[in-house]
Each structure stands twice: as C-alpha cells, then as structure tokens.
Design a protein around this nucleic acid. Structure first.
Lengths: 318, 318
DNA sequence: CAGTTTATACTCAAGTTGAGCATAAGACAG
DNA sequence: CTGTCTTATGCTCAACTTGAGTATAAACTG
C-alpha cells in the first residue's frame, strides 16, 4: 500500500476594473477554454503560497500582482481535473486548491502571453444588476431551479428555499455577496456545465448564454468566491483604491464600485458618504474629460491607513 | 532527486462560551503543552477536509462538532514542528496547516480523554478588555514593542506604527478583531515563546504571564485567527446563537457576546437592538435564577434563517 | 443660445445610535 | 414587613446617519 500523494494547486483571481466592468486575468488551455493563472505549489522552491502564486502568475501572464489575499482552500473530491491541467502532477495525486484574490489598478498589456482580460460577468451573467435584475434569472434560472427542487421529494422545500434566498426569488432581496452560494446551487442543480463535466450526469438543457461561460477545473468556483469576498470587503475596508489610478473623479470611483457590486448607487449620497469618510482628498484640479461640467480629481488618502479606522466605501443603493 | 511530499494538517478551534469566558477544546501533548485537536488529512480516507477534521476531533476528544467553518490555510515554512506533532508524517514532508472554527452551545464532558476546555484568554491575556484595558499592555507589551521598533534602524517608524495600530497605543483605538495582527506582531518581535522555539533567537525577557500561554506548533496562530474571525462575524451574521442553549435570558446572551468580544456592552441598547433585529423571540416564561428581578427567557428565531436578511447582533459599547 | 450632460450643494423626513433616567420585581437582612 | 441590593425592562432625548430628492453650476453640442 503506497500513500496517495497530495498536490496543492494555486490559482489567482486578478481583478482590474473600470466604469464598464470588472476584468479578470485569464489564460486559455489547448482547447481555448478559459482558466485562471495557476500552477502547482512547489514544496521545495516556494517558501510561502503567496510567493509561489506570484511566480506562476508572472510566468503565465507576465503580470506582477500587487495586493493579494488568500480566499479559500478547496479540498473536496471530484471538482478538479488533475490530468488535464497539471501535467506534472504525480498521477493519482489528491489535488487541493488554494484560491487567491489580487487587485490591480491597471489592465497591463499581456498581449505577449496567451492571456486576456475578460469581463467577469461573462462567467456570471446573472450577477450584473446595474441595469436592473437580468431577465435570465426569472426566465431561465428560476424555472430550472424550481424543476430541480420539485424533482427531490422530501428535500423539495429546502431546495426551493435555498434557491429563493440565493437568487432573490419570490420577494426575497437580492444580496450581491452571495455569489458563491448562487454558483454552488447551479452546480448542484446540474445547471453549470462544470457539473456535467465532473460527473456523468446529462448535459444542462438551458441555453448556455444564461449559464455563463464555464472555466476549467474549479476555477469558476474560485472566481465566485473572489467576487463574493470583494463585494463584501469593499464595504468595510478601503480596498477599492487598489483598483483605482492615482487620480480619479468621484464618478469614476463610483462606477468602479458599481461594476464590482453589480448594483448602481445613488450619486449624491455616495459622494456625501465619501466626504464624510475622509478616505479621499480633492486635488483642486479639474478634468473636463467627463462630457459635462468638469469634475474635480481626487486621490486616496494613503495616510488613512496609518489612522486606525479604515472604513470601506458606503454603498447607498439607488 | 526525489520530490518533497506535502502533508496537510487539520486543526480545530472548537469554541463554547458562558458569561465568564469563551472556552476552547484543547489537548495536551506528552510534555503537557496545550494544543488544538488536530490530525493529518488523509487523501485516501477523507472525502473533504471537514469530514477529516470531524473525525480527528472526535477521536481525540470524543466531541462531535456541529457548526464548522474554514479559517485559513497556512503554508509558510518554519512555523510548525512536524516531527513533534505528527509522528506519522513522512519525514522531510512540507507541512501545510488548515485551520477550522467550530461553535457549540455546550462544554460537553470530555473527561474520558486527555482534553480540557480552557478559557481562551489564558493564551491571549491582552485580549480581554471587559474590565478595562489590561495593564499588561502598557506595562509589559508596549515597552517591549517599542524596544523592538527602535532596534530596527530604517524600519523603526513602520514598526512603531504597526504596534500602535495593533495594540491601540498612543491614542489609537483598540480594535477587537485585530487579534491575529497582534499575535503576529508579538511573534515577529520575538515576544511569543513560539518564536523562540521556531528559530534560534534568544528567549523573551518578559514575564510569561504577560505573553500568554503558548501552544504547540502554529496552534496559537490558528486560535488568534479564530478569535478575530468570530469577533468580526458575530456582528454581521447570527452566529452567537450557535453558542447559546435553546433558552436563554438576554443578559446571558449579552455576556456571551461580551466574553467573545472582550468588551462590555451597553445593556439597554443591546436589548433594544435585539428586539429590533427580530433574531430572538420572548417565550413569556421567566426565570428567577438571575439574582434579581426574574428575566424573560428567549429563544433564537430559527425561521430568521429562512428570511434572507441575517444580521448579526449589534454591539453598542458601554 | 437652447438643450444636453455631468458635477456638486443642499434639504428634509425617517431612522439609528449613544447615553442615561426611571421604574419594576424579585431576594434577603434585620 | 420594610429597606436595600440586584437584575430587568421601559422610555427619553439629542446627535447623527440615511434615503430620496430638489436646485443650481459649468462644461459641450448643434
């Protein structure tokens, strides 16, 4: 009896954002399927996970991550495809997967690599509520989830309730942080193409546009984790500024926050909350690049980090 | 060249609490040193980390964890003692460590095992501010941290600022969630006995009472992570109720919250916030076991979990 | 210059929070 | 059985925050 070896996969969700959308750094495998920059943790060469991660991201995309934080470690069987993606793993190894979130103010040029920045909503079309709740939730997802609930005799009520809470059905509120919950529910219901791939179940019957573009291995699960974490954290820690250039207008800042949250915000109150928070300082310089009245440029008060309090940005819905 | 194997250690911070203190389930090694229930993840036998963890906890303490969540995965070199604690690890393996938090309403009887429930503040005496800021912060820790700052030429200002923010020195506010930050700072400054053990540095010169009781391996770091997470989460998710019996008075609830936070709260406002939150419902039954006017018994409204909103308990300082 | 676009100031009611006063209802000492 | 202690619980009040606007300013467009 020889022991099953363990392999640790490191994957990074590197996020940049502008007023249009948040973008993630992705790679493509031989078949053109999207994936996150990732690689094996090397117990010999890597002193910490984070160093290993930075090395892999750089090797695959040329990008040098700045702000990085650990998301979650997935260790359950059956959600990864070791063969396909980790040619160098000892075959038969048990693969565990550590996800990281990285933030950057700039979509750097990565054209020399087989990498591309993609709108994260391509993979999660139901998550963008900036122009109202997307139709596909009620036309495509909700009916499919109800079918899935009904198909399960004694668990039906429980499944339905989970779906209602996750997707804001039947009068429940939409809660933007529940990204992972929503994805996992779709996976469980067999509605994510990944579920079909990982098991021997039949293919989902929905138009794939409603289900979002899948990713290799468990990368979409990691992305969902990252979205949820970032959406939450932006509200209680000043992390948005990792996504902003040095100087920005308040509208730019608002639009980045909106693109992350997938929600639009009340402009006047957003600005009032920012003034009050002391996170940002006006530069007395104005830009007329905005199409209307010129807007003042602001910068993040880095000193704020030395001041103990550290709130996030308020997100007054509107 | 043979590859370095990877071993995954699973450790659990199992918390129970009463009005006096939060307690954690601990084991003792041969030398009597305290540790968390823990063991090796078995890539063959364990379908998920959580199942493996539950198995180990039960084997070592007889305890069956209920609510469990993953905390963090530590992978950096030099913070663990694989030999001492994991006799079955392939020697030379790289050990990574996944920490979990578990909550339970009851300190079950574990007398048949070499396990004991201990007040978590034994290991973190500077964290309990229920009776005001502990003296040892300003008499013992602050001077030692200043010495450490001063000893570092160009980093002195940065180190000092970190210490001020972490420990609320020089007018900075004390922020209870920063448990890990504080422990890591003490470790870095060589003030945690574990730092001495893990490296070849000299022993700390402070009375050990001020530094808290150390634990084996990286268990105190995991405990610090658990404390910080629980202190944060209690405020935005109704997790305290995992620590409460079925029926409780509002004072019992408040005292459990206080013991977790290490802060005392304003009684009237705490109660007002609870009413308003709808998390709890009066049973119309009164208990005179309180020593004064009889108090109404309440229970957690489990239905609240089916209602989408899910706030934590407010923590009005006082 | 009328109309469009974006920026920014200000208002107002409703709700929340911090702090504390006041009263109630038991136990217990004398 | 009265006064005192203890805990429970109701209530007030001012300061602040929040949601939802109205109003006005300063550019550009044709």
């Amino acid at each position: 009896m020889t022991a099953t070896p363990i392999a640790v996969g490191l994957s990074a969700v590197i996020v940049a954002a502008d007023g249009k959308a948040p973008y993630i750094l992705t790679t493509r495998d031989a078949d053109g399927a999207a994936g996150l920059p990732h690689g094996r943790f090397d117990p010999k060469g890597h002193r910490t996970f984070e160093l290993g991660l930075r090395e892999w991201v750089h090797a695959q995309t040329g990008f040098e991550p700045g702000y990085v934080e650990q998301l979650y470690t997935f260790g359950d069987l059956g959600r990864e495809l070791p063969q396909a993606e980790l040619g160098d793993a000892p075959s038969g190894a048990r693969l565990i997967s550590v996800g990281y979130l990285g933030l950057t103010p700039e979509r750097t040029d990565i054209s020399a690599f087989d990498a591309v920045w993609r709108d994260w909503y391509r993979h999660f079309p139901w998550e963008d509520h900036r122009n109202g709740r997307p139709d596909l939730i009620d036309t495509a997802l909700a009916p499919a989830l109800r079918t899935w609930s009904d198909a399960s005799g004694k668990n039906a009520a429980h499944r339905l309730s989970r779906a209602q809470l996750a997707f804001g059905l039947d009068g429940q509120p939409w809660i933007e942080e529940r990204t992972l919950e929503r994805y996992e529910l779709l996976y469980e219901a067999g509605l994510a193409p990944e579920a079909t791939r990982d098991s021997n179940r039949k293919t989902p019957s929905l138009p794939s546009a409603a289900l979002g573009e899948p990713m290799i291995s468990d990368h979409r699960r990691i992305l969902a984790t990252a979205m949820g974490r970032l959406r939450g954290k932006i509200k209680y820690r000043p992390v948005v500024f990792e996504l902003m250039p040095d100087k920005f207008t308040l509208l730019q800042l608002q639009q980045v926050v909106e693109s992350i949250l997938g929600q639009s915000l009340h402009k006047q109150n957003f600005r009032r909350a920012l003034n009050h928070s002391n996170l940002v300082i006006g530069l007395g310089v104005f830009t007329q690049a905005t199409g209307g009245r010129p807007a003042e440029l602001f910068r993040f008060r880095h000193e704020a980090l030395r001041e103990g309090h550290l709130p996030g940005v308020q997100t007054p819905k509107g």
